[in-house]
Design a protein around this nucleic acid. Structure first.
Lengths: 201, 201
DNA sequence: CGCTGCCCTGCCCAACAGTACAATATTCCT
DNA sequence: AGGAATATTGTACTGTTGGGCAGGGCAGCG
């Protein structure tokens, strides 16, 4: 039961020390040799062949977390698919790293909140969610809210939506507020990502 | 900060009591009225309109977990996509429920291990060949601009991009200005639409 | 006849986005 | 040496966005 950080150079020591002072820094070959069941392993995604390493260690029973300097939903999916239980930014705050460790140690999955919607959206579409994705997300909305959501998903500004629906900008905002709340997104950007990301059938 | 179990009949009381003796059993309408930010809510997937309820409560800041008598990867994705942070069997052992609560309370995702591989595998296969349209649009940009564009395309704010790339917000704006000019879009909304749509150049 | 849900609006405010007008540093090419 | 492109940051300004507070109108339901 150890905590291992897999990275290449000695300059690659972000804030891990602050979160885990008992941790050991190791190179990929060392990790292959040492890590075993029950260990917590952190792998940097800038290592060549990190996915293979993750698969190997995860298959051996280790709890693998992947850290990246440039997190993305695609990389997150690659990591999780390889068997990682956590994925996050390499420069995350120590408290966040501790949280990741806690969650993953208890059979949980940890992904940055901002990537979660995308990762889930991708996974959902992949498993036969098809283009019902939009309809389903929109089904909980009222008629007016749906109209606003669709217009915003086309990239229209509040002013343009207001003109199209012949209502005030204030009303557009009111509908948008309800949409954000119901769909659990924080702003129109996330709304667009949620609605416009579906495959070309 | 309360723990709520949403179900229809009184006969629907699995082993929750054992895991959370301070919990309250409520009906869907009561849940809508009472649950708020920070609350832990458990929703049965045999309720009609459970997805809407999950969206609503999750959007409100509650930590929602979905329980099913017939778990499937598909239903799990529906739950997570609706904003739930946990999904499991309604008759799970109390220790498992406690674990779910712990994990989800710390921003983690909890899904039965046997479903996880299925979910992730499907997602990964489907996302095999995505970014080509992106490469095309991004090819005219410099390295830095491309990094900014990709981050923005994920829905990140200027502040978040600045943190990720370790530069000032002002610099992010500078890069964005160049991106808008080169790609001929007026703002980040249009940028997202351009990068996330696969056809129609 | 109240109650509730949906729709519409006004005023106001904090935060964020985009840009104009700068300046400084580095690198690569002529 | 000089120029061009890139990367970085600053100050200041305008416009957009999201939302709190507050209200009006209309339909359906018990």
């Amino acid at each position: 039961m150890a905590e291992l950080f897999v990275c290449q150079g000695p300059d690659e020591v972000p804030r891990w020390r602050a979160a885990f002072d008992e941790a050991r820094l190791v190179t990929p070959p060392q990790a292959r040799a040492q890590a075993g069941s029950g260990d917590g392993v952190w792998v940097m995604s800038n290592l060549t062949g990190w996915q293979g390493l993750v698969s190997l260690l995860a298959g051996r029973g280790a709890t693998v977390k992947v850290l990246s300097y440039t997190p993305s939903s695609h990389e997150a999916l690659r990591a999780l698919n390889a068997g990682a239980r956590g994925y996050g930014h390499a420069l995350s705050a120590p408290e966040l790293l501790s949280q990741m460790a806690l969650v993953t140690r208890h059979q949980g999955i940890w992904v940055p909140p901002e990537l979660l919607a995308q990762v889930m959206g991708g996974a959902y579409r992949a498993l036969g969610g098809e283009s019902q994705h939009q309809d389903e997300a929109l089904s909980g909305l009222t008629d007016r809210e749906r109209a606003v959501a669709l217009a915003v998903a086309e990239g229209q500004s509040n002013k343009e939506v207001a003109r199209r629906l012949e209502i005030t900008e204030r009303t557009v905002k009111a509908h948008l507020g309800a949409i954000f709340r119901k769909l659990g997104v924080r702003d129109r950007l996330q709304l667009i990502l949620r609605l416009s990301q579906r495959e070309a059938v």
